[in-house]
Design a protein around this nucleic acid. Structure first.
Lengths: 196, 196
DNA sequence: CGGTTCCTTGAGGATGATCAACGAGGGTGG
DNA sequence: CCACCCTCGTTGATCATCCTCAAGGAACCG
């Protein structure tokens, strides 16, 4: 959970509903609002001219997203859109910054959150650059698993295409790599679903 | 400039000299110190089992590096080593955190810095995943140039190998791509040096 | 001048992308 | 209940691209 919802409402935040696939903000736009997910899941991604997409991250209930441009006056590095119908809490940039001044602990929390993002991105980049498709997929699966802190095999709630978008591979490559990973007993595939 | 050097010394920071190629900390080590470069240049990178290296960033005089693990209790995501003889200011983690409490503005500065790092890393990942070698190199050149805020053509102070390590390509690919970029008049190559 | 380090080129090969086609399952409406 | 449409998964064949390996040249420095 990021900022307490009651605090946000007190400061004038507004909950807005978005339809599935609706865009919340586009890459290269200026940032005017702090965003926090109340319900649904948001995806941040970059698309290149061929239409190939790279997913920077998913954000769901309780998580904030798109914060860095609020602190730096830069443009959004990626587009954010809803993969389901969503309810998003929006608070204007200046009020958001005032909240941070009013609650110093919150600022610390954000600092910590931004650091975690950096660490995650460092890992992602490292894995994508250095490794073979199977390694990339395993790294992705690890990052999914680490969020769930589950010791046992876990069903991976992503389609092959979604995994492809996270890892920068193509669907077919993901499928073929997963087949290999199954043969190597690293993952299970039961009824087309991936367990890791 | 990050933290004022006098403040750091007042709080017990120590300047340590490192030789060229000496490692300051290794990937996956725990973090005990805040580091700030006084002189020289530090490189953060990841190496994979084949010995191929990916450069996460360079840090030189006045810049701090390796901060995220200080705020999050995670391990270092990359190795830091000196590409020249360096003088590095070191301050223990707990004292560093106390300084931040004592100077709230500093905390804000770090928050901003971390956000800039996120934005930079988002861009890097996007470019590496989506684009052809020439695009990757141009993105890299742009990032170099943006730091120098220079409108005119600028000499790029990196070897082909260094560019390869930043972009995740191989030296030969960098060389061949640069030849093409020269033909397309995007860069100049004079006396083996790249101008952009 | 000998030893580095860096740059360059060519040939060949591996690998992931691309293209095309099909199958399986789930939901919807007639 | 069946026909249809989606979305998702799967497979094979072919292709383009970048990597690999090997060799040699240029620049720099003590």
């Amino acid at each position: 959970m990021q900022i307490d919802i009651d605090i946000l409402f007190t400061w004038g935040a507004v909950a807005r509903k978005y339809k599935k696939n609706e865009v919340i903000f586009f890459e290269n736009e200026s940032a005017f609002f702090y965003h926090q997910v109340i319900e649904g899941t948001v995806r941040m991604y970059n698309a290149n001219e061929d239409g190939k997409e790279f997913t920077q991250g998913y954000f769901s209930s309780g998580q904030s997203f798109g914060e860095p441009p609020l602190f730096t006056d830069c443009k959004y590095p990626s587009t954010a859109s809803c993969i389901q119908d969503c309810t998003i809490l929006k608070l204007s940039k200046d009020k958001f910054l005032k909240i941070l001044d009013a609650y110093p602990n919150l600022q610390k929390e954000f600092l910590k959150l931004m650091c975690l993002r950096i660490l995650a991105k460092s890992n992602t980049t490292k894995d994508i650059v250095n490794q073979k498709p199977e390694h990339r997929i395993v790294s992705f699966l690890n990052s999914v698993k680490s969020k769930k802190k589950c010791g046992e095999k876990l069903i991976i709630p992503f389609t092959r295409q979604e995994i492809a978008n996270f890892t920068g591979l193509r669907v077919e490559t993901v499928i073929r790599s997963c087949t290999k990973l199954k043969e190597e007993k690293i993952i299970d595939i039961i009824d087309h679903k991936i367990y890791y």
